[in-house]
Design a protein around this nucleic acid. Structure first.
Lengths: 256, 256
DNA sequence: GCCGATTTGTCCGTATGTATC
DNA sequence: CGATACATACGGACAAATCGG
């Protein structure tokens, strides 16, 4: 079964899964919606019925519903019911945000993907780096450049900065595989919040040499600042995408 | 006082405000964080203390905290406390997403802003329009083109599609002022969920004539599908931004 | 290493308000 | 008006994580 989430740490097999009643109910209802049991613009059963069905409390079910709402699956209407507003997205070539990661999208489309490490170094943040990354001047950082390939095309150019004190023992080999597997698996670190910013920038000389850019003169840039379970900002990543392979999804909900 | 939210319907003066205890507490804590009472990486008072202070229940306070968390203000750590992870963003010229709208950003920077209507028409969705907007073939739609100016520069080119049955009586005059004021004020419609997609596209001939593009060859495009309080998809908007005046913010939280 | 105090996380049951039909 | 359904709020209970003695 698929886990539709672009947030790296939300993938299956990473870290400890969300074992809680409300999350299980959320996943169950999500699958029932995606499976077509409840159709677009239709209503799911009432809270009372679902409480009976899942044998849980009112509050627990409401928590599950609130997560469904935040992810854009349903829309509750006071006095009427909870309406389904999710539709399958037909023609998204490459989706970031709520949907899936680079690797997941590749797997789903049966596209061969691989990652190569362009550079790996330990640095100390100077004024310039600190301003760009949000770290403090003097912080020791790993600086990693990686290139994501799809079907032999270099399409994403990632520049990561990791706080050494939070992610000790990082190596080029680990980085070529999966940093999150190392961070959550070996180090046992939990990751929680990610603040992301999307911009559009002119291509740099590095972009030109790193990516298969055709004649594109600009790239989509996702700047992601990630916090671990201690609330420490331990990573900043600049993800530079060729425009035609870039899509970013987001759901905004009133009152949340 | 400022309401920092880019989601149009979350602005002050639109519709009925969020009058609830948990939301008042959320706003209070947000202001205390932004005001510097609690500093970055510091802890806010414990749940028990805040329950005492705000004279509310455990659960109500937790709801306020969950909203703070979803907005990227705090990070709770089990057994320790709730850590502040919000920092003031220094050098964002123009921010979309969680922060503010075009109009708000202009007001904040003391920049004169205005909107001009480029075209206004009623159409019936054909196969092409339906596929692009998510409406059904045959739906009657208002199609509106507007240009947002800052300091005399045409920087954003908005193409809106409104469902006529949901937003009857729309006129060019209303559209030049504020659609949301009309929709929420006059029609009394509540707006709830907005699904947004960010892409980067080549400039079109329309972009060239509508915007002051300098030598940019691409634009940032925000495609926004908005649902009203009945869960009906009533608007799709394509917002085409000059790249250097475009920033999109987002906060992703594990378990939500 | 253990224990107890503190703090957050989850869950339950209940009551009341508000909107829809 | 009453029945239904979602929204908010309260209070209590226990689990899990952290920290200090």
């Amino acid at each position: 079964m698929l886990n539709h989430s672009a947030i790296p740490w939300a993938r299956e097999g990473c870290g400890i899964g969300m074992r809680s009643i409300y999350y299980d109910i959320y996943e169950s209802l999500r699958e029932r919606i995606e499976g077509g049991e409840f159709s677009y613009q239709g209503f799911i059963p009432s809270e009372a019925k679902l409480v009976e069905e899942y044998q849980c409390s009112h509050n627990t079910l409401r928590k599950a519903l609130s997560v469904l709402r935040l992810h854009g699956y349903v829309h509750p209407i006071q006095g009427k019911g909870v309406k389904v507003i999710w539709q399958r997205d037909m023609h998204a070539r490459f989706v970031l945000g709520d949907i899936e990661t680079f690797r997941e999208a590749c797997e789903r489309n049966n596209i061969s993907a691989c990652t190569t490490v362009r550079s790996f170094a330990q640095i100390v943040a100077d004024v310039h780096v600190a301003a760009r990354t949000g770290f403090e001047v003097g912080d020791r950082l790993y600086r990693v450049e990686r290139i994501r390939h799809m079907n032999g095309l270099a399409l994403i150019y990632d520049i990561n900065y990791f706080l050494v004190s939070a992610v000790p023992g990082l190596t080029p080999t680990i980085v070529e595989d999966s940093v999150y597997l190392y961070v959550e698996g070996t180090l046992g670190m939990r990751i929680s919040t990610s603040k992301r910013t999307v911009k559009v920038e002119h291509v740099t000389n590095d972009d030109r040499t790193a990516l298969d850019l055709l004649d594109y003169s600009m790239v989509a840039v996702v700047i992601s600042k990630t916090f671990n379970s201690d609330g420490v900002h331990f990573e900043t990543t600049f993800s530079r995408h060729r425009p035609d392979f870039f899509t970013f999804h987001d759901t905004a909900v009133r009152g949340y």
